[in-house]
Design a protein around this nucleic acid. Structure first.
Lengths: 201, 201
DNA sequence: TCGCTTGCTGAACGATCGTATAACAAGCGC
DNA sequence: GCGCTTGTTATACGATCGTTCAGCAAGCGA
């Protein structure tokens, strides 16, 4: 009889993408402590050695996963803003609401983010990626706040406060999802944002 | 010559306290990934076996450390409120400001908290402790908001928003301390709180 | 159909993890 | 001063960690 191939050869880029996806799933399911080379390789259906072969080490794989997940989140937020139309306030609300609604508020994704946070202290590369991500999120919020009429002097602080509000709700939504529903978190964020911006101008 | 004792016998309660303090220091310095039995025992100046002897396992030690750190934070917040005098708004501001100022905003303490968060998914006991801690913090905020005149229907959501605001600032202060100064975070929180409460009534 | 490139495997390595346990000794009570 | 309680140490165990690497084999090109 003809034996089927023991494994399939895949071009490097596709294999790397496959490993990144598997890493994201493991991080979401088991947290940072469970994201071992062997667990990720098992999830991807390959041998442990492939991680070292394509990424050099598990740290680089996790960093790449961070970058990819963040790109997806960023794209989803941009899409939500674009779909909200031209009204500045509507665009602002869309940005904040989308951050706390599926698919971004998906529990697995939030767990993945927590895992990244827990690695910030130990991995300088992850810390650098976090700074970039936080800066991007706040810059996006600043731009929308400026559109909505928040005056320039208060812009930075209002954006920081709004970012913190969203992050805090996001965090609690992940740590204990039963405290409040996803929809409630988004509503609280919108109401809070109204309060924050009414003070600033 | 007379050889000095190889170790000192300490009563269980004192030794447990010593191990908890060592655990907190290790968590602050190296994060959750570095909080191994051996690292904690080395920090405390004892042998690794003592952790098992006094706590049964490392999980119980970490949970006990969480409980103790949280008690210290809670006590510091209560003291800040008490020192603020009778004015409701001043008491509210004191509660929020104290959360983002030393010694609570101490970087080591915030790192400790991040380590706890990273353990919430894997350790049900830690998750339970987090729920209790979050509930206590929000309840304290709700009481102060009620004093300050926030009407009952908006109380819950205002408290959730304010808690999220503080947690988000706290988080960013820990992940990248260079983003803003400690004093700035507290100021942003006070301004944001004013906005949140002005909307609610 | 055959050879060659190279993606891939799987075993092995040393380090470190949490835990269990037998032996030791500090220091109190007598 | 001496025995006893028990806090403490030191070691050993099995599991799992990240990484390495020699060799296999998939599948394209000739």
């Amino acid at each position: 009889m003809t034996s089927q191939p023991a494994f399939r050869r895949v071009e490097p880029d596709a294999r790397r993408a496959s490993l990144i996806e598997a890493c994201a799933r493991v991080l979401a399911r088991e947290g940072a402590a469970g994201a071992s080379v062997r667990a990720i390789a098992l999830e991807a259906g390959v041998s442990p050695g492939l991680v070292g072969h394509h990424f050099g080490g598990v740290d680089a794989l996790i960093a790449a996963t961070y970058a990819q997940v963040e790109a997806q989140v960023s794209a989803a937020l941009d899409a939500a803003v674009a779909a909200a139309g031209p009204d500045p306030r509507a665009r602002l609300n869309a940005y904040v609401s989308a951050s706390l609604l599926p698919p971004i508020a998906d529990n697995a994704l939030l767990s993945t983010w927590i895992a990244f946070w827990s690695l910030v202290r130990a991995r300088p590369e992850i810390a650098r990626l976090h700074d970039e991500q936080y800066g991007r999120f706040r810059a996006g919020l600043e731009a929308l706040l400026a559109e909505a009429g928040v005056p320039s002097p208060a812009l930075r602080r209002t954006a920081i406060a709004a970012t913190a509000l969203v992050d805090g709700l996001w965090l609690e939504l992940c740590l204990s999802p039963h405290t409040f529903a996803e929809g409630e978190a988004a509503q609280i964020a919108r109401e809070g944002l109204a309060g924050l911006t009414s003070t600033g101008r």
